[in-house]
Design a protein around this nucleic acid. Structure first.
Lengths: 165, 165
DNA sequence: GATGGAATGTTATAATGTAACAATTATTTC
DNA sequence: GAAATAATTGTTACATTATAACATTCCATC
């Protein structure tokens, strides 16, 4: 009974290197189209953001950079993040002060995020029905939307199953 | 043509002291019902949050407290905010790291916020149609919602009219 | 008026983010 | 190719937001 349940939360043993490769390839395409320079450093930071399907904080990225032997200061990370945000290659999760790879870069979309409070993984949605309702409500009150922040915190399918915290 | 436009953004010269008084009265009711202690300090900070229909940062509140002659440190403010958040008397606007008075304390609701990027004022919605769509989408993906963060940034009706920045 | 729990005071520090200017690297123009 | 220009990165310092830890005070109740 019920519709097939599409999994936005990839399994534990999916081929994650494929995710990363795809993200990097898409990023190169997007930058070529938009005339942005995906420098090695920016690419490396994008790759670090993609290490997991979890949002990463700026200082965690800084830590990872240093572990990779690169001595960097906060502005290095924040500048790369600014570039990546500007080209729609990552999103910022406001409720976590953290950053996550965009799964549909290049295509204009509002991100809507399902954030698991247990495993921290994030799934990105772009449901027209949600955006539509937001648009409708905003219009009703004479409000002109510039940007939507929709972050839904809760339990992902897998963590709902594992009720042994 | 079109529906009457309900104004969620009060006019510049509405009787704001009435807003504050109502908020404080509601807060007292809520605390009585829930068994929370609305101490003078907590009440004062709630009052400061309500000084405008704009979200206020914790350190701005600290500043206002000091202007009121009270020498306080950050934990004083954060503890009061924690109490007020816990009793649903204020909301935190994630995208601004700021706090705003709740317009419907006591009644369970998800806050949905229209935040004006020009005048910074905020209107709180609780549209079942939005929550409903979020619920529906989450359920579709097997996700169990604990908390919704919906913050819509854009131009409020008045600022849309004033195109002379 | 003793006592136990909540609230507040106080100091220090953690976590997140940015300003400002110097140095370098890439790109264009001559 | 060399000079000029623009973009990127390095570096230092600092701003902003938030919390940990422990001492003290307040307050309801016994």
């Amino acid at each position: 009974m019920g519709k097939p349940m599409i999994s936005l939360f990839p399994s534990e043993r999916h081929d994650h290197s494929a995710c990363v490769d795809a993200a990097l390839a898409q990023a190169r395409d997007v930058c070529r189209e938009q005339g942005g320079r995906l420098t090695p450093q920016r690419q490396q930071i994008l790759e670090l953001v993609w290490q997991e399907h979890k949002p990463v904080g700026a200082y965690a990225l800084l830590e990872r950079l240093r572990e990779a032997g690169i001595k960097a200061a906060p502005p290095t990370v924040y500048r790369a993040l600014e570039f990546l945000l500007g080209h729609g290659l990552i999103h910022r999760i406001e409720s976590l002060n953290a950053y996550t790879g965009c799964t549909a870069p290049g295509t204009p979309h509002h991100g809507q995020f399902l954030v698991c409070s247990q495993c921290q993984r994030v799934a990105e949605l772009d449901e027209p029905s949600i955006s539509g309702e937001l648009d409708r409500s905003a219009r009703q009150f004479g409000f002109e939307i510039e940007r939507q922040t929709v972050e839904i915190c809760g339990l992902c399918p897998r963590c709902r199953g594992n009720h042994h915290d």
